[in-house]
Write a protein that binds this DNA or RNA. Structure first.
Length: 267
DNA sequence: CGAGGTACCTGACAGC
DNA sequence: TGCTGTCAGGTACCTC
């Protein structure tokens, strides 16, 4: 499930393979996933690939941007030459033809994610609703704490997953961060004391950094360009039966989503 | 305004 | 075997 660490992994790999290359043409197989506008204004050179929250931004030298979101099951694949077989044809949404005959593809099983072409203004508008980047230097404990103070009555787990609150956390890392902080996922923000707020701040940053080092978590549908991440081996509660301290993990439902937590470690 | 619920979409899997 | 129901979940959109 692509969250911040998985998207960051994909961005780093795309940067290696696609940055400073020219997109000559795009073949759109599924216009619901790849907006037809993406094929216009080519060829164009990719001069930067970056991440904001869970979005991927390709900066083109044509004064436009490609905005990609993996949602649940979106994948990029880089294919070295035109003669190579399209290994992932089954869910192929689009083919990006690069200079020199290589290409990369976008595949989307559930067709939730996709790629659109946007202007600088549209890009700014899309990101204006996003909360801060949890790994940014400017995201200090003070910044996190003042954010928490704005929503005293909200349930902490739901808020951690709210992209306008904090950009990049999803169901897995929100749960893992709460385990690290010893906070029950149904706790209201106003009920969390300052020491647990600090543990949550440090816990979520540590977990994101560690997961990036592991190239993300590979569960069910997520794999990055070069294979699989390994953070799933380090999960404490998500889809686990026992927490690292050998207590039984419980599963509850919050907003139609499963939440795993340890009733003994998280009060 | 915030908070909570639901639709979107398809594959995996359990149960009969 | 083959059907049905449930679950997975990021985000936009809706209602209260």
């Amino acid at each position: 499930m692509p969250e911040l660490p998985e998207v960051e992994t994909v961005v780093r790999q795309l940067r290696q393979a696609v940055c400073f290359r020219t997109i000559e043409a795009v073949t759109i197989k599924d216009p619901k996933v790849i907006s037809p506008a993406v094929a216009q204004g080519l060829p164009a050179r990719v001069i930067d690939i970056a991440r904001r929250g869970k979005s991927i931004i390709f900066t083109l030298d044509s004064n436009a941007y490609l905005l990609a979101h993996l949602r649940m099951t979106g994948h990029f694949h880089v294919v070295p030459s035109r003669s190579a077989s399209l290994e992932y044809q089954k869910y192929l949404s689009g083919i990006f033809h690069l200079d020199g005959g290589s290409f990369f593809t976008f595949n989307e099983i559930r067709r939730f994610g996709g790629i659109t072409k946007v202007s600088a203004k549209e890009l700014e508008k899309a990101f204006s609703r996003l909360g801060p980047e949890p790994l940014a230097d400017s995201f200090t404990f003070t910044a996190f704490d003042s954010l928490l103070h704005r929503f005293p009555s909200a349930v902490i787990k739901t808020k951690l997953m709210d992209q306008s609150f904090l950009a990049g956390l999803g169901n897995i890392y929100a749960q893992e961060a709460l385990y690290r902080a010893g906070i029950h996922p149904q706790t209201k923000i106003e009920e969390i004391g300052v020491s647990k707020r600090k543990r949550l701040y440090h816990g979520l940053r540590e977990i994101l950094r560690l997961a990036i080092k592991c190239n993300g978590t590979t569960i069910q549908n997520f794999s990055h360009l070069d294979g699989k991440g390994s953070f799933q081996d380090l999960l404490s509660v998500y889809q686990r039966e026992k927490c690292p301290r050998r207590h039984r993990v419980e599963r509850i439902n919050q907003g139609g989503r499963s939440t795993y937590y340890c009733p003994r470690c998280q009060k």
